[in-house]
Design a protein around this nucleic acid. Sequence first.
DNA 1: AGGCTGTTTGTACAGTCGTACATAATCTTG
DNA 2: CAAGATTATGTACGACTGTACAAACAGCCT
Lengths: 229, 229
Amino acid sequence: MTDAQEKPRPRRRAKPARSAVAPDAAARPDRRAAILLSAEALFAERGYAAVSVRDIATRAGVPIALVGYYFGRKPELFGTIFEHRQIYIRERIARIEAVDCNPANAGAVEQLVRAWAEPVISMRGSEAGDVFALLVARTAWDPGPEAIEIIKRFYDPLARAFFGAMQQAIPTCAPDRIVWAYEYAVGALLMYVGDKRIERLTEGRAASADPEQCEDFIRFVTAGFEALR
Amino acid sequence: MTDAQEKPRPRRRAKPARSAVAPDAAARPDRRAAILLSAEALFAERGYAAVSVRDIATRAGVPIALVGYYFGRKPELFGTIFEHRQIYIRERIARIEAVDCNPANAGAVEQLVRAWAEPVISMRGSEAGDVFALLVARTAWDPGPEAIEIIKRFYDPLARAFFGAMQQAIPTCAPDRIVWAYEYAVGALLMYVGDKRIERLTEGRAASADPEQCEDFIRFVTAGFEALR
DNA sequence: AGGCTGTTTGTACAGTCGTACATAATCTTG
DNA sequence: CAAGATTATGTACGACTGTACAAACAGCCT
């Protein structure tokens, strides 16, 4: 347990290249997609380690061994989920890079916050969006090595794009202070999309999809960054 | 697995009343405290579910069965840790209640944020403080039922004290908006004390104990609340 | 000395876990 | 139809889990 020495496991069968599915693609249910969706929902609810491969298979309505057949080992399945949702991340980076960060642009800070947060906020409400947003929040706070690897691979680029741009917008501010502020903003956003306590604290009146609430969030974070000036 | 029906387990031996330990209290090592410290550190590092009772016993240098003897079942051990640190929470509530929340007091918002955050920030640096702060952050994001129960029991009172006071300080603001903003602030604070990514993103230059950084945090959150006006 | 009380242990039970593997069913192509 | 590729499945292995329990140990009082 102390030292997880190298596992010289023989690699699994190579993942099939998902060949062009024949005309009856609709007739036969896509079990691969079912597993992926099931895994995503369960990981989002309970966190990576608390979900067993058996749980995933049961929820998807397939035999256990099929999970391994399609996705290999558990960490690879985890990674595949994020690869499927990579569009969401790329959209945020693109929006950040589209902002005019010239210090002369007085609204640059707010525009950056919007570019960074709005894609996340607006994907809430839809089934898939809610689930994935929650999954990201869980994963960001998951101390397990598999989760850390995921954040590094998929979300560090977004982080660097953001505070690279913010640094241009507030050139007088020391870079590390911006990184810290970015962390606070991430913390706030994760709460916005992933916290379950709000329902309890507002006695059931919570409405995270409320556009009013979204504007308040933007205001909160923008004001925080502006305070660094 | 689907339904965790009632476990009519016969209760363990009653917890001994920690009788006045004989003169050799120093001679014999306090294994009870060793277990508690070991458990706290491990739960903080890996999260509740990822730590086994065997891990705790091994780190404390005691046989496995001793954990059960002193603390009963695993969830009870978890709760006992927080009972031991309750002083930290009570101090924050006391400081919040000491703030003059009259709307005429222009600095009330900042004073409330300080009262709420400074006890946490200033306990960092010390060994025990760092560990407990990290434990709280992990627990706040732990989706498991044991963790949710802990937050409800120990941290909901603090939350209600805070946004009760903040409501007095900003009476024109709708109560639920304050609750949301409180969530964002909690998210930011948890990042401040519990996130491990900062070291990677600043390329090793991170210094969370830096008093300069602490002031920036207060500024960030205060500005966020002020933006609700 | 004995008895009593609180501590300390080794061990065992009944589960669950991830993963591999041999085999079977089904589809695609010749 | 037959051959080959792909998809599907039941089962088993070793490792690890939380927790109970009987037995042994220590120190103190009478």
